[in-house]
Design a protein around this nucleic acid. Sequence first.
RNA 1: GGCGCCAUGGUGUAAUUGGUUAACACGUCGCCCUCUCAAGGCGAAGAGUUCGGGUUCGAUCCCCGAUGGCGCUACCA
Length: 486
Amino acid sequence: MPPTPRVRFAPSPTGYLHVGGARTALFNWLFARHFGGTLILRIEDTDFERSSSAMVDGILEGMRWLGILWDEGPFFQSQRLGLYRATADRLLAAGAAYPCFCTREELEARRAEAAAAGRPPMYDRRCRALSPEAAAARRAAGEPAAVRFAVPLDGATSFDDAVFGAVSFLNAELEDFVLLRSDGIPTYHLSVVADDVEMRLTNIIRGADHISNTPKQVLQYRALGAPLPVFAHLPLILGPDKTRLSKRHGATSVIAYKELGIVPEAFRNFLALLGWAPGAAGPGREILPANELVQLFSLGGITKSNAVFDNDKLAWFNTEYIRAYTPEQLLPLVESEWAAAGFVPDPGILRDREKLLGTIALLQTRARSLRDFAGVFRAYFSDEFPYDEAAAAKFLKEPTTAALLLALAERLRASPEFTEASTEATLRLFAEEQGVKAGVLINGARVALTGQGVAPSLFAVMVALGRARTVARLQAAPAIPLPARG
RNA sequence: GGCGCCAUGGUGUAAUUGGUUAACACGUCGCCCUCUCAAGGCGAAGAGUUCGGGUUCGAUCCCCGAUGGCGCUACCA
């Protein structure tokens, strides 16, 4: 292993950063950090039709959100066309490539013909047979030509993959693939190799969907006389139905998970454990912050089989990380969630920072998502909040309950103290006097105070809201709408 | 179709690399706690390692075959 590995993440900006790409980026980052190496970001935008700068921005945003910072780049392949043409020329000069004058239409026709005849639809290599003179003459005459790689006719090309082991392909199965299109734009096959060589990459960590492409690249390394990097192919991430993860499985872009209220550390931790096992962490240890992931990471721990993306497990990581934050750390995330949701908290609540942090602390242990703070937790931050119909129907359906809460409000208003202990004592005493179960008042009060049937301990809620709000909301209990009984 | 890769509970992964009652985490279910819900504590169910052959005293692990899934099969990446 070279002292300082150089790796890259090379997304194609034809879409947002998706889950699989993020995992590839993450593994490259973990690998680079583990060995003190360099992570290069390279944008593979040679498909001008499908690439866009908006997608580039989206990819960078997703990486930054996950905390995957690169050391060099971003480099854009669209700005390195000279390198690819020069590389193609070298291959041509070495006799490892040849110009091909077949047009797209001819190629398609022949492919259809071959398919109809039940033959493999491979390029028939007819231009490979052209004499150099004839080819040169046609080029000189201005006839457009693509450049194809001359794959050896027999033998096999193999490589030793860091996760899959020895992989071998018969050369006869490989087609004379196009390196440079007739318009001078390189195909993926050429640009990856040219860049990976030029950038002196030592390890290529990428999705397993590239395994079949690898022999075509190995052949080019050999023809170029370039040292072969170590390939490590990552198993793919599948949806719950075990088909490749795609839009129809729901959120597929990394930013969509941010919008779902997932916290970046949770998503990163979850992703790291998809297809990789931190052997040295010991059993039962799955909550691993970035520095530990970096320390534990090794290509040897990568699995060969595809992994199914499990939303339940992600949700678990999310709750764990939300709980683990200090309220000070969590507050900014909550604030951006509020902004994203268009929710405006009560200025008075925001002003008392200490109390605000206390409220966050009270709620964070039971949040599933950042979204809860602008959703079911609204009543803690604003006087404008909805009442959950099911909760109201369940706990306030007895007409006497609201009246009791009204009376309780008066007791709480008049009590000398307003602490968890005092409010609880007041409520229980009142319940006893009225001959009702404390639970009736507690459950009813919970709905009146929070709009929800579920909340932290009622008395902690009262203290968090403060006496004035608690009294006012209890007084409003008779006005809480009950769903019409159908 | 051809080629390549993969295959351990519902999911993610372990199994000193041929010798364990096949482990851990998520999820599920039950109990405890309790003002609700989470959390927490305790416990349970759930795979005999896709199937069939082999090798071996002994296979999750090695070999062969089948099946299934995924990937590649473009002048996309």
